[in-house]
Design a protein around this nucleic acid. Structure first.
Lengths: 220, 220
DNA sequence: TTGCGCCAAACTGTATACTGTTTGTACGCG
DNA sequence: CGCGTACAAACAGTATACAGTTTGGCGCAA
């Protein structure tokens, strides 16, 4: 099919496979894929006007990274049982406080400013009707402080499991109480960043994760 | 080509892709792939009597998991710079002490026995001429106590980065001093397991990782 | 109506082919 | 002898085809 649309531009480095991977990764991370959706490579390929192979490659990569599962009838979102979610909370308690502390030590003024803006945005959209919008603001805030973590390996690990438990976060995102908790945690973390207080960042990240776990346990 | 050798046996669940993946994963983990080796899908496919696709799938999976890199001329082992290695040591300090503590609490008598045997094996082969043999014994010991970690997510994370820095471990495995350090660490950990002392396991794992890092820094 | 089995469609895994790109090399020009 | 260029081979990405397997539904019988 039409694979040679714009071959003249050498800046076009990304292959179909990588673009499809990125596309569906962000879709999954944004919660735009429903648990009942069945992602079938042939269907997606037809809709994109490419062959099955690059779609298949992208889907299988997502499977290996834990974002999808393959169940002999299309790719689907994995179901996270309570045990796995609690295990991830334990991981978060181990990694994120340290990451926050390191990020504080490493944050540039630009990141600080961006973080301040992102927090204001999240705070404003907290009471918004559109939960999705609030969620996106939180995502921006998180990605910002994570970008200041100098330990690349650590950052990638956090990135990985955080987006995997996306569906779970949607669950606890339902009520206003959780929103207030999240924004309060962000506020404290932001204060720690401004104060260059890495220990405070460590502590408030610890509390933040614990609070999140408690909220999750409240709602099953 | 011959894909239908033994289709009658329904237990034969593994696809070519998965078998090739497993095969090369263990080869990489065992250090049987040299840094200068170039793994080319067509060549491997020809040698295995299968088509390029399953080999390619397996290689790309290994790439995405960090075991290989794709450099426009075959797949090769990734080069780990000092910074990345130190970052992984930081990760290990965060995760492995906790994992060891949990493993102690969760270890069954069978695992304890196996661990004792594995330690004896490692101790015996320490002075052996065959470094590879000693290394394998250490691998067995490590996999054993890791198998007792109840937190699956945590275990998988440790598994992932540990085998990635395989090449690095080969570096520090060179001298007898390191061997003694490793065996001493294993002895203490084993004692903690027998004493059901999870805090001791936590502490001695912490020291073990620190010692490993120091040894690495000695040898650049 | 319910249970059983069969069949067609859906889907996965693999094979093969083709295209575009990169790399190594050898030849020609300076 | 050095340097650039062009050509061939190697290799990655994608397309297409096909076989084997699973699934869901339909018909038939109890």
């Amino acid at each position: 099919m039409q694979t040679d649309v714009n071959k003249k531009i050498p800046a076009r480095k990304l292959s179909h496979r990588d673009r499809i991977y990125q596309d569906y990764l962000t879709r999954i991370q944004r919660g735009e894929v429903a648990p009942e959706d069945r992602l079938v490579d042939t269907t997606i390929a037809a809709s994109l006007g490419v062959s099955r192979m690059p779609v298949r490659d992208a889907m299988m990569r997502l499977v290996h990274e834990g974002y999808l599962t393959t169940s002999s009838r299309g790719f689907k979102l994995p179901v996270w049982d309570k045990k796995s979610v609690l295990e991830v909370f334990e991981l978060r308690r181990l990694l994120e406080p340290r990451a926050a502390g390191l990020a504080v030590q490493n944050a540039t003024p630009e990141i600080l400013d961006a973080l301040t803006d992102a927090f204001a945005n999240a705070e404003n959209t907290m009471a918004s009707d559109d939960i999705r919008h609030f969620y996106r603001a939180c995502e921006v805030f998180r990605n910002l402080w994570l970008s200041a973590v100098p330990n690349t390996q650590l950052r990638q690990m956090i990135d990985r499991y955080l987006s995997q438990i996306q569906a779970v976060r949607m669950v606890t995102m339902g009520d206003a109480e959780s929103h207030a908790l999240i924004v309060a945690g962000q506020r404290q973390l932001l204060a720690a960043f401004h104060a260059k207080d890495s220990l405070k960042a460590f502590d408030c990240m610890t509390r933040y994760v614990y609070d999140g776990e408690a909220k999750y346990l409240e709602r099953v």
